[in-house]
């Protein structure tokens, strides 16, 4: 299976401008401006009910937006939706199939609605997701993990430039999640773009290059995963038998934004404009030893997307 050239030469595979969807009084998606560059794994992250699936459904023509505009693979929607979707593979919510048909027949049903070459790609797609030897069994006998893989095969037979996957690891066991992660990264390495909607922070962090955090229908922040994660507060854990004295020593000057007691020591929260964590850690060690304090642990807490996500969504929750 080969990657086809990008169909329209546009810099973004997904662009939305002021995209809004209302259900009566409730605003599910509220003026979203989103631009997803090609050739990356992009995470669309948010709590349940944040508007992730609604945005995907609008992009795919499953529901009409209330206002705003969209472009998919550089093509304006809904005018050129058919041309755009010809190079898009998608799973929306859980993948559904005709249970009385085999896996191969289910792919044939969808391939019949697409260009003729799609049918020829069915064997390769089944092979790639590891279902070739079970493809002629009825889907009613498939596990959830097999259905997820068949859903991915349904996307791959399009030879997609863009894959839009809504919670693709739902129902997968740990081995299945690892396989899915490997497959998604391989697809990105082939030059395809993967748009991954999920509420699983750890999964998004492991798979995605960039991320947008969405909450209450709006995009709260977006950018490279490392950048978003490091946007949160930076913390150094200090293990000592004298946390009270340690807090006094480390609170002096502008070394820390705050020093909090924590378990067997103190937690030093760095100021946004402080030195790099490694330099602060060295200064902490120097001060502790200089003050004659016992130091049995010094650890720079790794900034995670999860911490950042919780900070953002908690803050929004308090503001609401």
């Amino acid at each position: 299976m080969t990657s086809t050239p990008f169909t329209n030469g546009a810099p973004y595979v997904i662009e939305t401008d002021g995209l809004t969807k209302r259900f009566g009084e409730r605003v599910a998606v509220d003026g979203v401006d989103l631009a997803v560059s090609r050739g990356q794994a992009f995470g669309f992250l948010g709590p349940n009910g944040a508007g992730k699936t609604t945005l995907i459904r609008m992009l795919l023509g499953l529901t009409e937006p209330t206002s705003g505009s969209m472009r998919l693979l550089g093509r304006p929607l809904p005018i050129e939706r058919a041309a755009a979707l010809a190079r898009v593979g998608a799973i929306v919510e859980e993948p559904r199939f005709h249970p009385q048909l085999t896996g191969r027949q289910n792919l044939y049903i969808v391939a019949a609605c697409r260009e003729r070459e799609t049918h020829d790609r069915i064997p390769a797609a089944l092979e790639r997701v590891g279902l070739a030897d079970r493809a002629d069994e009825r889907v009613s006998g498939y596990s959830m993990g097999m259905r997820q893989r068949l859903g991915i095969a349904r996307c791959l037979m399009v030879d997609p430039d863009l894959l839009i996957l809504d919670e693709p690891t739902n129902g997968l066991d740990p081995a299945g999640i690892l396989e899915m992660r490997t497959l998604l990264r391989a697809l990105v390495d082939e030059g395809r773009t993967v748009f991954l909607s999920s509420h699983l922070l750890d999964e998004v962090e492991k798979v995605c290059d960039s991320v947008a955090i969405v909450d209450r229908g709006t995009i709260v922040t977006a950018g490279p995963v490392a950048e978003i994660a490091s946007g949160g507060r930076r913390v150094i854990e200090v293990g000592t038998t004298q946390p009270g004295r340690a807090a006094m020593v480390l609170s002096e000057g502008r070394l820390a934004h705050s020093v909090e007691a924590a378990g067997d020591g103190v937690r030093v929260v760095l100021a946004p404009d402080s030195w790099e964590p490694q330099a602060v850690a060295a200064e902490i060690a120097r001060r502790m030893i200089g003050a004659g304090l016992e130091l049995h642990r010094l650890e720079i807490a790794r900034a995670t997307l999860e911490q950042r996500f919780m900070e953002i969504t908690t803050r929004l929750g308090e503001a609401a």
Partner: peptide, 18 residues
Amino acid sequence: GGGVFRDLVVTGRSRLSL
């Protein structure tokens, strides 16, 4: 009823032909 209509819609095929 089987929840597969959306998978046919995302092929880009017109709904009237479906």
